[in-house]
Design a protein around this nucleic acid. Structure first.
Length: 264
DNA sequence: CTGGGGATGGGGCCC
DNA sequence: CGGGCCCCATCCCCA
């Protein structure tokens, strides 16, 4: 089953917002935290060593790359400072601090924002982007919910992505509203666990350690990528020159820098 | 140019 | 239905 079965992407907006720019260009972004830094730190779980059994698949990618253009709609027209947090703080109550990747978070978030209804999301969306004015008709969000009979899809009002479930749409909307804000630097994230991972960049916590060497990582995915370096089998192979790489990104780079047109 | 670490985004699954 | 976590993907940066 394809991972993207829930979303019909016209071509998803691959690129993430550049938060560093967001910082620099947004002096007014003064992070009014719904929780304080202490809370954030408290939410950081004690180091816990992952024992990666490293069941690395040995398959070699044969076909890959589905480079996607980015025909974003309305949202893409907006500069990055948008997700600026006007109402993020209210939204952030929803999940701030709840996230945890490795272990469980000790402290629950101050939650004044529970049951997120579609309409409230919509309202918050507008609240978060007060200057945007009315959305294009086709982007008026959650339209599917209003007419489930004729249309099962739920559209994001920000980018017009279409989802087959309201839950999926709600989750997606968070990538626009970025309700989880770092108490240290003010960066905003769509998910609590993303925030948690980010917080580790401040604390230096690295709960995931490699069983082959002594390296530790803050992120499980990075550990997984690291484990590839211990593996003899490189999963990603260039169809042109048959070279193999430990990561798809390396293969991409390889192809982009010479092998895409022919044997190197 | 390559390899690797760091950081982040987002959909899916399970409870 | 929502939260939490998993996994995959990707970009950036540096050696």
């Amino acid at each position: 089953m394809p991972r993207s079965f829930l979303v019909r992407k016209s071509a998803c907006s691959r690129r993430r917002p550049n938060y560093s720019e967001l910082h620099d260009s947004s002096p007014e972004f003064t992070f009014q935290q719904p929780y304080d830094q202490a809370h954030l730190l408290a939410a950081i779980p004690p180091p816990e060593v992952l024992n990666p059994t490293a069941s690395l698949p040995t398959l070699i990618w044969d076909s890959l790359l589905a480079p996607q253009a980015q025909p974003i709609g309305w949202a893409s027209l907006l500069p990055q400072e948008i997700p600026k947090v006007v109402e993020l703080t209210s939204l952030s109550d929803e999940d701030s601090g709840k996230g945890s990747q490795p272990p469980s978070p000790p402290s629950p978030a101050p939650s004044s924002f529970s049951s997120t209804s579609a309409s409230s999301l919509e309202a918050e969306g507008y609240a978060a982007f007060p200057g945007l004015g009315p959305l294009p008709k086709q982007l008026s969000g959650l339209s599917g919910a209003k007419d489930p009979q004729s249309r099962k899809a739920f559209n994001c009002k920000y980018c017009n992505k279409e989802y087959v479930s309201l839950g999926a749409l709600k989750m997606h909307i968070r990538s626009h509203t970025l309700p989880c804000v770092c108490g240290t630097c003010g960066k905003a994230f769509s998910r609590p666990w993303l925030l948690q991972g980010h917080v580790r960049t401040h604390t230096g916590e690295k709960p995931f350690s490699c069983s082959h060497c002594s390296r530790a990582f803050a992120d499980r995915s990075n550990l997984r990528a690291h484990l590839q370096t211990h593996s003899d089998v490189k999963k990603y192979q260039c169809k042109t020159c048959s070279r193999t790489f430990s990561r798809m990104s390396l293969l991409h780079k390889h192809q982009e820098s010479g092998c895409s047109g022919g044997p190197r």
